[in-house]
Amino acid sequence: MTVEQISQQLNLTVFGGNKGLNTEITGGYTSDLLSDVMGFAAVGSVWITLQTHKNVMAIASLKDLAAIVLVKGFTPDPDTLAQANEEGIPILGSKEQSFELSAKIYNLLN
């Protein structure tokens, strides 16, 4: 399933990084601790978080993550968005909280 398919099925907002919408999602990781994601998220994962600052993009890029989904209506900081566009890593958004969103994405992937 691609980032775009998940985004359509769950009605997610696409803030930016549209170049990467065709990336295949191979799993997910839900965490707001950057070292946790850095150490343990698998390549191709969608990262579910409430962190909106630029460092999330650095981590997504370094770890080759498929996309970031911001929960609870959070929106990316301007420099976060700029880097998402530059790197082509989609940054999406949802009104839902992490538990619910993770469950829905899990169900779509499994």
Partner: peptide, 15 residues
């Protein structure tokens, strides 16, 4: 608050 400071950095390096 930024999500740093989980105390996992040095252990991650060692790993």
């Amino acid at each position: 608050e930024m999500g740093f400071g989980a105390g996992m950095g040095l252990p991650n390096i060692k790993e």
